[in-house]
Design a protein around this nucleic acid. Sequence first.
RNA 1: GGAGAGGUGGCUGAGUGGUCGAAAGCAACGCUUUGCUAAAGCGUCAUACGGGAAACUGUAUCGAGGGUUCAAAUCCCUCCCUCUCCGCCA
Length: 423
Amino acid sequence: MLDIALIRKNPDAVKTRLAARHGDWPAQIDAVLRCDVQRRQAETQLQTLQADRNRISKEIGAKKKAGEDTSAIEAQVRGFGDEMKRLNEQTAALDAEQRDLLLGIPNLPHENCPVGESAEQNPEVRVWGEKPAFAFTPKSHVELGEAHGLFSFERGTKVAGPAFVCYMGKGARLERALVNFLLDRQTGEGGYTEVAPPLLVNRDALIGTTQLPKFGDQLYHCADDDLFLVPTAEVPVTNLHREEILRADQLPIKYAAYTPCFRREAGAAGLGTRGLIRMHQFDKVELVKICRPEESAAELESLTADAERILQLLGLHYRTIELCTGDIGFGSAKTYDIEVWAPGQGGYLEVSSCSNFGDYQARRMALRYKGEDGKNQLCHTLNGSGTALARLYVALLENYQQADGSIVIPEILRPYFGADQIG
RNA sequence: GGAGAGGUGGCUGAGUGGUCGAAAGCAACGCUUUGCUAAAGCGUCAUACGGGAAACUGUAUCGAGGGUUCAAAUCCCUCCCUCUCCGCCA
């Protein structure tokens, strides 16, 4: 969330920067400010009363020790009770209201985040490789997968429901090969520490990384235990250090985690109609960084490079775009998306989204570090897919399909897959 | 799930209604001295939110939330977590 002190001090600058996003955020800023004034007023009144009470209570203690009568003075303080209770309730209510308002306001886009209305204005940052040429009409991964028995939507639907898939045989092996390849690469050359986190998380964790309170309708919820299936490893992994004060020499922290991701995709159009591209459950290797504020800009660049490296090693043509202010996620200050070419789709597929959240998540989860000056400061948090599996899987099948219908496995993946090709 | 024990500052650990935000020790940091890879002495050393230009100052926090009281780390209730034993179990 945003710093109330910053909003108080410089409301116009905050409004200007939020105006580049969609939504009536200036009105929300005014609402927070109104609440803040009331809250502090009530708080000051309460504290004054508490100070009086504390002072008099100490007097009573001293007098009792001295054997003096205190009944009159006790009766006087007794009268404080109702007013204190009232102010206490008022303060608590205003405090909760202010927090709710702040939780509902998105992050400020970074100063150098491109201004734009929608995805059409996202600038292309770089392109790697080029589209492969086919002497035949490339097939969709759905067709290829069916032909080779790699996965079955029918069986996924039978045991779970629409938009679930079941990988089978060589298809399951390929998925596992990709997971292992990604983890080995990111924990080896990439320098990330591997984490295997819980797949169910609590509310506090989801508030910390901004999925709650606003986007709860996208989460699978286990009501009996009030736990949620992770929509991304970002949630458990970033929250690993919530409410901690880290030592400066621990930073930057770099984690890589493989998990399935569960998303309800409520209201999503075309769900399940395009094969593996949008599913309720998909695998992902996520990269998470916790660092000092002055490091986060450079860490985002290297994080994005770590994700891109995967596609380079697999020989897949991709482009990297930067999200403009109208398209950027709720908690992010700056985001790069990596899109891989999928010939069977005739388009690019988003396989990674790399974001710098600045101190926005860290403030929500009270994640700090002790600086050299001994002062506690909020960390910056970042995350990015390194990468998502299902769409990578799609790209692999579609880019490496041959005229005879077989699929060549890229060299680097062969030790993991145990064969040179499928079919 | 059942029985018992317990949750205090970075750590260990006192504290069972009143000058306790909390003794003591350890660790850390600063200074001094001696000198050498260590010791001694002194000092500093939790967090959040307010007020103040600042010096400084107020309030809250001893797992969380409620209650009793003029006053709660300390008494009462509820919940959470940890440990031990039992049960169940991949």
